[in-house]
């Protein structure tokens, strides 16, 4: 079958020790049986490895940081689109999704660029700070949490939790604290990096299991693959993981997608207790960095998302292969200074 030429822009090219999902998403797209993709990398930093991975990324452009707002982002995307004629953008960072969701309609109307993202309501109600209420609304077990904005707030919540607790940033980072001093230490460190608020969450003992899933926006689950982290880095990231056969977890996932009518990709993070209870820790409204495992298990989620973004009908994947493992590795690329110079000075490579 002849593949369709298509131009896809992808963010999250930071394949570092706490990797963004971009490179996994690109690898998945390049496995597509339907599309012959030209991949445009969208980067925030000149040191994002994906910029220099020319076998995966055809051309890269710098885009403005999320904090500068939607107008600047739209302006830059229009500049890039004038050269590249982008068909679909797949954003992969939590922190940028707000802007991309806000721009979804304008990008379609003004640039004919499509995305397949959750609605602003879906995006907001699963925010870490709102997750406890989200759990109550959708009948999910969620560890109790409180949002704090200053060190003084620690005293106010002291008697609401027993130690240990988890101290979390709004978008990223989570540390376990065993006393008030450690909460304060983590509060300072995380808030400097990721801003406020900070979320204090009840610690649930068990093993961490995650799901990468994709919903079509009508309540149908197109695909879902559960995974248990086997080796976790000091940043809490999976260095290796294995796909699971877990019907209960898949049922929780499909019920959640059905009740929220979730549109697009998502990563669900759970703690499974020794009593086989599942506590939802986070919903990330994007592909996880380990999404390529789903491809290895027979479910190419990025390819399915592409089709849905382009208005094609996509059938649900009937099953996934269990016992498939991924193991990450690090790799030193040799880069010519000219390349670094070009992306640094012209904002493209």
């Amino acid at each position: 079958m002849k593949k369709t030429d298509i131009t896809i822009a992808v963010t999250g090219l930071n394949a570092i020790d706490s990797p963004g999902p971009g490179i996994s998403v690109i690898r998945a797209i390049r496995k597509s049986n339907f599309y012959n993709p030209r991949i445009i990398g969208l980067s925030y930093d000149t040191m994002e490895p994906g910029i220099y991975m020319h076998d995966l990324v055809d051309k890269s452009y710098q885009i403005p940081f999320p904090s500068v707002g939607t107008d600047n982002l739209l302006f830059r995307l229009k500049e890039i689109n004038d050269k590249e004629k982008i068909d679909v953008i797949i954003p992969n960072f939590d922190a940028e999704l707000f802007n991309f969701i806000k721009l979804e309609k304008r990008l379609l109307e003004q640039c004919n660029i499509r995305m397949f993202l959750p609605s602003m309501k879906q995006f907001e109600e699963r925010q870490k700070a709102n997750l406890y209420e989200f759990g109550k609304k959708y009948n999910l077990k969620v560890p109790k949490n409180k949002t704090i904005y200053s060190l003084n707030d620690i005293n106010k919540i002291e008697y609401e939790f027993s130690f240990p607790v988890v101290v979390k940033g709004k978008y990223y980072d989570a540390k376990v604290a065993y006393n008030k001093d450690q909460i304060a230490e983590h509060f300072n460190r995380i808030s400097i990096k990721w801003g406020l608020p900070i979320i204090i969450q009840e610690y649930v003992f068990g093993s961490e299991v995650n799901v990468t899933a994709i919903g079509d926006g009508t309540g149908k689950t197109i695909g879902a693959v559960p995974m248990r982290k086997q080796y976790i880095t000091d940043k809490g990231k999976a260095w290796s993981g294995i796909s699971l056969d877990d019907d209960k977890l898949l049922k929780i996932t499909s019920d959640l997608i059905k009740s929220t009518k979730w549109k697009g990709s998502m990563e669900l993070e759970f703690i499974k207790t020794s009593n086989d209870e599942y506590f939802l820790l986070e919903i990330n409204p994007r592909f996880p960095a380990w999404v390529y495992l789903a491809v290895g298990c027979g479910q190419n989620h990025p390819d399915a998302l592409l089709k849905m973004a382009l208005g094609k009908k996509v059938n649900a994947f009937p099953k996934h292969e269990t016992g498939k493992m991924f193991i990450r590795y690090s790799y030193d690329m040799i880069i010519n200074l000219k390349e670094f110079e070009k992306i640094s000075t012209s904002g493209e490579l």
């Binding site: 248990r228 086997q230 294995i242 699971l244 056969d245 016992g323």
Partner: peptide, 17 residues
Amino acid sequence: NNIAISDSGFIFNPATG
């Protein structure tokens, strides 16, 4: 039923990994 063992004695529980 879902637990497998290979000829080399490797046992795998697909529900927990």
